[in-house]
Amino acid sequence: MSDPVLEIRGLRVDYGLGDAAVHAVRDVDLTLHRGEVLGLAGESGSGKSTLAYGLTRLLPPPGVVSGGQVIYHPVDGPPVDVLTLTPAQLRQLRWAETSIVFQGAMNSLNPVHKVSTQLLDVIKAHEPTTTAAGRLARARDLLRLVGIAADRLDSYPHQLSGGMRQRVMIAMALALEPQVVIMDEPTTALDVVMQRQILGQLAELRERLGFAVLFITHDLSLLVEFSDRIAIMYGGRIVEEAPAAQLYRRALHPYTEGLLHSFPALRGPRRELTGIPGSPPDLRAMPEGCAFHPRCPKAFDPCEKKVPALGPPIDGDPGRDVACWLHPAAAPVPH
């Protein structure tokens, strides 16, 4: 496995302060390696988007990051903790190193400015020495890269279709050739055909440009196809993390298993579609012990008392982690 490019350690994100705080992300450790696609899946309310906004410090009030580290490793130079940066430093790091493609393609573009204005201003902000003509040429190239005619630069967002808007957002995300692209449900608002097209294109672009992707979605079937590794989130914690193929073949956490059984098999024999009974936990009143135990078909004694730690299980393949009492950690991880 290649070097880490983004390391999240013990990240905690809350909404609100003090006793009223709702802990939406709890002690999350996650490492994104250079050039890989890491999928992050979970039901809505599992904290996956909060994690993404928290680590980029884009979470609006009353969100606060209450602890942890988010370490970014630039290609050259020492690693930096994103959480200790001043606004000015953060502004410099943003987009140049980590860019984001947001959930709502509809509302991500400023409705009153042309596509060109919005593509050019980010280049100008980070590379003020470039010439206007140079920036324009770059913007044209970017649009072509995502399969949009360069004359669309003069369009306003409302003149573009949903798919085109999301492509523009992807082009914009790649404008400064960042090391990390975070994608928060980038295709959810699109129809299935468009979804496939855009994802295919993304995979191709990643081959070519070599950026790492943190791909957040509630659709595990997408991740099985498109990502190298998958992390599953539940109740603000990572409950399982494994290479995509291994996870699909044999899920260790009952929750992962439930997710896998909520869509039809991609190939091979038909599986039974069961889904997961119950609904995601209320973050304000999390159950004791493992957050999943009230919905878990395999819950037993320790589940409702103690929170299982995430670590390599005794009975699993190497390179995978799980947080479940069914598969206790082989050797407790040293952290």
Partner: peptide
């Protein structure tokens, strides 16, 4: 959302406030 995007793009405070927020 487009204000969050503008922040994520690392644009200057002034540009986000005027060209993105105030303009709309």
């Amino acid at each position: 959302d487009y204000i969050t995007v503008a922040h994520a793009k690392g644009l200057s405070e002034r540009r986000v406030a005027l060209s993105y927020a105030a303009r709309n």
